[in-house]
Nucleic acid binder design. Structure first.
Lengths: 343, 343
DNA sequence: TTGTATGCGTTATCAA
DNA sequence: TTGATAACGCATACAA
């Protein structure tokens, strides 16, 4: 017998199948001698329950899926890295398995993880994304996944109409907090680095909405002080260079970066141009990633730590798996402004 | 019937269980009318085979595990990020599921993934690590995992005595290539930034072995030009600052960084100190990570791309799962020196 | 307290 | 070509 089953254990211990099962699962009140014999037999045989059989019988996969319908290679962003770290850490505590949803990132219309659910390989799904990665299709994606009638938690993502279980940052908008901080510090002119990826390359983010946010705080900006691009391909760095390569009066006093990885790119650019941070340029960002601590100049950042968002998503999913028929709920993770050397 | 089984499909199509199964699996030669009826019934019912039942019957998990016995939080290093990206990309092609091994990273002695294998949740394992993360326990870990008699591919890791299936870089040592490049460029004095984590904080890497490598190339160094630390917690950055904060004659002309993330940290430090790269300081690293392209100054790097190592590991594992009784083999991934602006 | 019988949803075997 | 039946390994209702 190459790999022992519970039947082998029972046989060796001289008890019946169900007795062995009960004892090994702690379902039996007391059986001093028998229990010891069964446990001993299991140990000697090196018995390990077959997870597949157990799951089939229990009608539970004891696993959850992780969906990353990103439009670029998985794991390439610093935000994802932190989210994953949190999810991984919390998952270890659950004893469940974590299955990565196989899906091509280059097909924006498709929602992944459905096959995982339909084939009963997982009990629930955590969907990672950003508002930007979905754009106007977010509602469709949500409806599609809801059709599965399986627990789904949306992570750091969706702020549309449909009620979904999701994890979000608590409190005021992180960008708002940063701007208020800028105002308090007396940084009157503010630029902005953003990463939304639905924009064409080179296309600037809309200026007017941003200006409207600055107005009540007494801050000013200019259209050419906006820049957009991802950190991973160097676009953010170049956008920052473009933005900062202006004479002292022509560039912003402070830069709001929508994402700590963008702030790191901006920091590199600033240092490369000989600007001192924060004396010549103040920098702050909105994702509260772990890398914000280890930047050349530690970064001021706002919002709940991304890894905590990941943890919260796992916890919420476990709740939903336990008691599936709950009303959709938004779990809020607290987090405020962390002031570091960059401002 | 909330979720239809193949029995439901068979019933609806008016055929037997086994007929339906055979047709849906393409095992039946030809059955023009019946086949159509069965397929139609499956479609109407929205039938999806239960992966758990299938796997139990087939005695195959149709999944593989990914073990990361790192001593710090998973996903926190740029190397891991690239490896994972490659693994993820290739895994999508296999149709198998990718299960992350639940294991605490802070217990160095333990090898993870064993429970995944023993509970038959996966058909094989990819173990990620670095030489450094194992130290002298690598041999024990290998033996422990071999006891499972299940396909295991060691990724980017192990260079010990025991024959194991592993993926490695082809060709000359990447560090060697970088040093030769330094010599060719005429950078006579060379420093070194390393990340091996088995060293106590503040402890310098051994100098003598490094000096011996430099000698035949006509390069020189000094003990105080060595620095060690991880990138993710800022230690590498500070080590680099320490190292570069010396007057022109007292610091190395070029810096070999063992990992592109260390090179980025060094780059930030150099720029922060007002050094021009490569005019004042040349930088090159050894991991060939994707981030080497997007650094403030694009980095010269050597070695096979990390993502390719990940892909190769998955491919090799699939081979081993198909035909398990092969002799251990080292898959070599080609890669050379990529010269960019930093040298 | 322990044993017997049954089913979870498949695929495989073999007879019809 | 099709269908009945037997596993796969486990957990559990129920009988003893």
């Amino acid at each position: 017998m190459p790999v022992p089953t519970i039947t082998d254990v029972a046989k060796k211990a001289g008890v019946s199948l169900s007795t062995a099962s009960d004892i090994l699962n702690g379902k039996l009140k007391a059986t001093p001698a028998t229990a010891a014999r069964v446990r001993e037999a299991a140990r000697e045989l090196g018995y390990r329950p077959n997870a597949l059989a157990r799951r089939l019988r229990m009608r539970k996969a004891e696993a959850f899926g992780l969906v990353v319908p990103y439009r670029r290679p998985l794991f390439s962003s610093a935000l994802l890295t932190d989210l994953l770290a949190g999810i991984q850490a919390e998952q270890q505590a659950t004893g469940r398995n974590l299955v990565l949803a196989a899906g091509r990132y280059d097909q924006p219309g498709e929602v992944y993880g459905g096959d995982l659910v339909e084939s009963r390989a997982v009990d629930g799904l955590i969907v990672i994304g950003t508002r930007e990665s979905y754009g106007r299709d977010a509602g469709r994606d949500v409806r599609e996944l809801r059709r599965l009638s399986c627990p789904v938690v949306w992570l750091h993502v969706y702020e549309g109409q449909e009620p979904v279980d999701r994890v979000a940052r608590a409190g005021p908008d992180a960008g708002e907090e940063v701007l208020r901080h800028f105002a308090a510090r007396g940084y009157a002119s503010v630029g902005r680095l953003t990463n939304r990826i639905n924009r064409a390359p080179g296309e600037r983010p809309e200026f007017e909405p941003f200006r409207k946010r600055l107005e009540p705080l007494g801050l000013v900006s200019r259209p050419e002080w906006q820049g957009g691009g991802e950190a991973f391909d160097g676009a953010a760095f170049h956008a920052a260079m473009e933005l900062l390569r202006r004479p002292a009066g022509e560039r912003p006093r402070a830069l709001l970066c929508e994402g700590d990885d963008l702030a790191v790119a901006a920091l590199q650019a600033a240092l490369g141009l000989g600007l001192r941070v924060p004396q010549d340029l103040a920098l702050a960002s909105t994702n509260n990633l772990s890398l914000s601590q280890s930047a050349a100049v530690p970064l001021t950042t706002a919002g709940a730590p991304a890894s905590e968002l990941g943890r919260a998503a796992v916890r919420r999913l476990m709740e939903l798996i336990e008691r599936p028929d709950q009303a959709p709920q938004t779990v809020e993770v607290p987090g405020g402004l962390i002031v570091r050397a960059s401002t």
